[in-house]
Simulated scan of single mutants.
Amino acid sequence: MPDEIRERVGVQVLVCDPTGPTIATEQDALDLIGAAFLGARVVAVPATRLDERFFSLGTRIAGDVMQKFVNYQVRLVVVGDISAQLEGSSALRALVHESNRGGHIWFVPDLDALDDRLRATG
């Protein structure tokens, strides 16, 4: 299944294919943002699509990618189990916690949890 825009609880979401290309650079983020501009304001990326260095905050990949989404006012949602990455990094745990309190970047376990968050933000 290719990345495609789908309506989820009344919101247009670019739902990314779990087997699509790895997201490792700012250009990869811009490519997704460009695809979202075809009608979506939310991009749901499976955690498996993120380069493993994304979860190592010292590489700055997470910050660079996330900042692009904030700059273009497109919500990024990382979908999937990242418990192994969280276990090894208190800084990543803090980032996820703070991100989930805001409105631009969310980390959710699955698309049902995304639907719940979208409903809550009305």
Rank of each mutant, 00 (worst) to 15 (best):
I5K: 14
I5D: 14
R6E: 12
R6N: 06
E7Q: 12
E7R: 10
G10A: 08
G10S: 08
G10I: 05
G10V: 07
Q12E: 11
V13C: 13
V13G: 12
V15S: 14
V15R: 11
T19L: 10
G20I: 00
G20C: 00
P21M: 10
I23T: 13
I23Y: 06
T25D: 13
T25M: 14
Q27A: 08
Q27H: 08
D28N: 13
D28P: 14
D28Y: 11
A29F: 03
A29N: 02
L30E: 02
L30R: 00
L30V: 05
L30N: 03
D31V: 09
L32G: 09
L32F: 08
L32I: 14
I33S: 02
G34A: 02
G34F: 04
A36N: 07
F37H: 12
F37E: 07
L38A: 05
G39C: 08
A40P: 07
V42H: 00
V42T: 03
A44E: 06
T48D: 01
T48A: 03
T48K: 05
R49D: 00
D51A: 00
D51Q: 00
R53I: 01
F54V: 03
S56I: 06
L57K: 00
G58A: 07
T59A: 09
R60H: 03
A62E: 05
A62T: 06
A62C: 09
M66C: 10
Q67E: 04
V70L: 11
N71P: 04
Y72T: 04
Q73K: 08
Q73R: 08
Q73Y: 03
Q73A: 05
L76G: 12
V78T: 15
V78Y: 14
V78S: 15
V79S: 15
G80D: 07
D81C: 09
I82G: 04
A84V: 03
A84I: 04
E87N: 03
G88S: 03
L92M: 08
A94H: 07
H97K: 01
E98V: 12
E98M: 06
N100V: 05
G103R: 15
H104Y: 07
H104T: 04
I105R: 09
W106A: 12
F107C: 07
V108S: 14
V108R: 15
V108A: 15
P109F: 03
P109Y: 08
D112T: 06
L114F: 13
L114I: 07
D115I: 08
D116Y: 13
A120Y: 15
T121M: 14
T121A: 13
